[in-house]
Design a protein around this nucleic acid. Structure first.
Length: 784
RNA sequence: GGGCCCGUAGUCGAGGGGUUAAGACGUCUGCUUGACGUGCAGAAGAUCCCAGGUUCGAAUCCUGGCGGGCCCACCA
């Protein structure tokens, strides 16, 4: 073995790839362990979040392989979506037709996938690349469309007219999950209404005067002394319209004047009230966010309409006052523009009504850590609207339906037409009213694509084996997408198969910047994983992942931990070199004489093995690597290696052979236990010292050997280690070099350990480099 | 307003009803020990956020504060 170099990682990366080391083979004998890996959005670059979460389940995959499972570990790509459209539009302009445009998006995405795939391989992720899937593939479209047709058959997919979150900038409906909130300054306008019956003034406060034409009611709190008498009467808006005054407990008495106008729709509370009190709906804006159905303001943008409306009210003397207000508004997470609520004809999945089933299914799975289940339960309990699944975009999975232009009847496309492309489809006749049905041109929300990944990787629906691989063993994912990915997957797979999709969910948090804040360009605290790999090696980065805890917590990136991980790789490497040199003439058939140091380290190894294996089973990689590092670095390297050096350099054959044997045994089992975390270094050591035929990653996990655990071995070994430690301290205090020989030393040993004295006498003399020793009884172990 | 997580040495972080509360980085002192100075041997550094309660005993459990984070709802 030479000096450690990163070329080793490149070498093994290529080797594993060309040998299909990680290909999934179902021999029907071993148990299946399947991982529903998150398909990353094809942004073109791996970030620290990917490195964190993908490392975590790669550890699981490698561990399970060594534990004798057939591991189904495919990698997918979440290709479609708005960001790619934006970039492609920026590069090629807006004049492409739909087909050309989508092709450019596909080309673009393919390139990005190439880059990201090579970065993943560089990280040592052991996916089976022959089972890769892309959500933009025709085959994938086919399955998504098939799933929607099946749900349509059950009456769970329908077209409807509902208030939806609408992004006027993208001209598309969006889901609640795609919204973000920002704080901004706005103006609260106090506007004079009138009570129809009594002519008294009624001051309402609103931030959305541009919606005045869509005002359908005025609300007050039923317990509000000031206004209780008005409930049931009518109000006249400044535009002369007569609307009801209604009492509702959701009105905030203390906000503004305590009177609120309800428009359809100024905000979500309006929508709630409209449905609660069965109020009329006025479709107030068009797709581009311009006013409609008003008297004079049709066609104006909302901001212009606000100006115009305020001017008019002011001229009429109905604007009482204005005040500044801080407000939180919802924006579209992709384009960052404010969201409106709009009546719109969209496709929906019926989610409302399934809450109980979803929660029941979620409770049947194991959530790691367990409190994350609550995130899903909370979110599910809040769901009150169905899921808007249609998007008026291009780069997405086309919805496989026809819609009658007259009666709105919907029909699925024939299964033989899948994958369905609306551009190429002909109109057909409505089997309800006989009019023309047109192919739907909207595409599916990207969560529709990604919410069937457990089915996709199982081979659903055409591969008969799918039931064997479903439900999948593990769903690893970020905690922040429980409300989307986990929620939608549980819902969809439940209605499609009747079974929960996973056995276990492993949640991970995010990597924060070294300053503890969310990584962002503006803060300049972004850590690039590829630079880390360059500087420290992929194995070191992977070890870092284990170091700040395996919980779902967010964790700051920490260069100190990174450095420690790097040192550990170095330690592992050099200890292996030592063992290699020490065992040059090793022969397993030699006669061996095992003594205290050997028995002590073997006992320790066994105890550590137990803890490490248990920790791996629980996905607790922090404990697993911490235990291993402490054992390997401090017990094995700092102590055992030093304890046997005199035997390695001696002529006593039996003592030398036993030392060699023990060195090799401990090293082999240690690198096996480290293999899931540090695949490159351990593969190299395994190949150089133990077996150059087979990969360590296909070898089996060290077996538990209970007979090696023995308290006598442990006590004697610990006494030996403590005495050596005392001798080192003693020499240190005398400013002596440790290898300098002492002529004589008196060693005090507590009475209960006295019986080990003779057993360790020779080792103490040889290891401690003391010519002559004498034992005595003392309260604690010490030397003089 | 609701839910969840968290508050431990200069920094990062394990652990956790009962003797001296891991470990890493940093700091300090020794050691050119033949795998490694990316090393070895030592040392210093913690009122375990605050206040009550339960207990023979709390940093650990409970309650309430204070502080931080994430998610959700609402803000007309």
């Amino acid at each position: 073995m030479d000096k450690y170099s990163k070329d080793i990682e490149i070498k093994w990366m290529k080797h594993w790839s060309s040998n299909n080391t990680y290909a999934f083979k179902d021999d029907g004998k071993k148990p299946i362990y399947s991982i529903d890996t998150p398909p990353p959005f094809t942004s073109g670059k791996l970030h620290m979040g990917h490195v964190l979460s993908y490392s975590l389940f790669d550890f699981a995959a490698r561990f399970k392989r060594m534990r004798g499972c057939n591991v189904l570990y495919p990698q997918g790509w979440d290709c479609q979506g708005f960001p790619t459209e934006v970039k492609v539009e920026k590069k090629y302009g807006k004049n492409l037709n739909r087909d050309e445009f989508v092709n450019r998006c596909i080309e673009w995405t393919k390139e990005f996938i190439e880059t990201m795939r090579s970065q993943m391989m560089r990280m040592g992720f052991s996916a089976d690349w022959s089972r890769e899937y892309k959500t933009m593939d025709p085959e994938y479209h086919k399955k998504v469309q098939y799933s929607l047709i099946k749900m349509h058959e059950q009456g769970l997919v329908y077209i409807g007219e509902h208030p939806v979150f609408w992004c006027a900038n993208c001209r598309s409906a969006i889901a609640k999950a795609e919204t973000e909130e920002v704080e901004r300054k706005t103006v609260l306008n106090y506007i004079k209404f009138r009570v129809a019956e009594t002519e008294e003034d009624l001051i309402i406060a609103t931030t959305r005067p541009e919606y005045l034409h869509a005002c359908v009611a005025v609300f007050v709190h039923p317990d509000d002394e000031r206004y209780r008498h008005l409930i049931g009467k009518d109000a006249i808006t400044p535009l002369g319209k007569q609307v009801k005054i209604i009492g509702d407990v959701d009105v905030e008495k203390d906000f503004g004047t305590g009177i609120v106008m309800v428009c359809t729709f100024g905000d979500k509370q309006d929508a709630v009230w409209v449905y609660r009190h069965n109020l009329p709906i006025i479709d107030a804006i068009d797709e581009a966010g311009r006013i409609k159905n008003s008297d004079k303001f049709d066609g104006l943008k909302l901001t212009d309409a606000r100006e115009a409306m305020l001017k008019r009210i002011k001229e009429d003397g109905k604007l009482v006052k204005t005040e500044a207000l801080h407000q939180v508004v919802k924006i579209h997470d992709r384009c960052k523009k404010p969201i409106e609520l709009k009546m719109s004809k969209q496709w929906f999945c019926k989610v409302d009504g399934f809450q109980r089933d979803i929660i029941k299914a979620a409770k049947e799975m194991e959530w790691i850590p367990s409190y994350t289940l609550q995130y899903l339960v909370d979110w599910t309990n809040f769901v009150e609207w169905d899921w808007v699944i249609s998007r008026q975009r291009h780069f997405g999975t086309p919805l496989p339906f026809y819609v009658c232009s007259k009666c709105n009847h919907t029909a699925p496309v024939d299964e033989s037409e899948l994958p369905f492309k609306p551009d190429k489809a002909k109109n057909r006749k409505c089997d309800k009213c006989g009019h023309e049905m047109k192919p739907e041109r909207s595409v599916a929300d990207v969560w529709v694509d990604s919410s069937i990944t457990p089915l996709i990787i199982s081979g659903w629906p055409d591969n008969e084996n799918w039931k064997k691989y479903y439900p999948v063993s593990l769903r690893p994912q970020g905690i922040e997408i429980i409300r989307t990915w986990a929620f939608y997957t549980i819902y969809r797979t439940l209605v499609l198969t009747g079974k929960p999709p996973f056995k276990q969910l492993l949640l991970n948090g995010n990597v924060l910047g070294p300053d503890g804040k969310k990584m962002s360009k503006s803060l300049g605290n972004i850590v690039d994983p590829l630079e880390l790999v360059e500087k420290y090696s992929a194995d070191a980065v992977r070890i870092w992942v284990t170091m700040s805890g395996a919980t779902a917590k967010d964790r700051p990136f920490n260069y100190q931990e990174m450095k420690y991980a790097q040192s550990f790789i170095n330690k592992l490497w050099n200890a292996s070199r030592f063992v290699e040199n020490a065992c040059k003439d090793y022969d397993a058939n030699n006669e061996m004489q095992f003594i205290t140091a050997d028995r002590w380290i073997m006992d320790k190894l066994e105890r550590v093995k137990h803890k490490v294996t248990e920790a791996y089973e629980k996905y607790d990689y922090f404990t697993a690597t911490t235990e291993l590092q402490n054992f390997f670095w401090h017990d094995f390297c700092d102590n055992y290696l030093e304890f046997v050096k005199y035997r390695i350099y001696s002529d006593e054959a039996k003592l030398k052979a036993s030392a060699q044997h023990t060195l090799r045994t401990v090293l082999l089992q240690s690198i096996k236990m480290l293999a899931p975390v540090a695949p490159f270094t351990t593969e190299e050591v395994y190949n150089e010292l133990f077996n150059n035929e087979e990969s360590i990653h296909l070898s089996s996990w060290p077996e538990q050997l209970k007979e090696n655990i023995n308290d006598d071995y442990k006590n004697a070994g610990e006494l030996l280690a403590s005495i050596i430690s005392e001798i080192r301290k003693y020499k240190n205090s005398k400013k002596m070099s440790l290898k300098e020989e002492l002529p004589y030393l008196k060693i005090f040993v507590p009475k209960e350990l006295e019986r080990y004295n003779e057993q360790i006498r020779d080792e103490v003399k040889n290891i401690g480099k003391v010519k002559d020793i004498e034992f005595a009884i003392g309260e604690q172990i010490c030397v003089e």
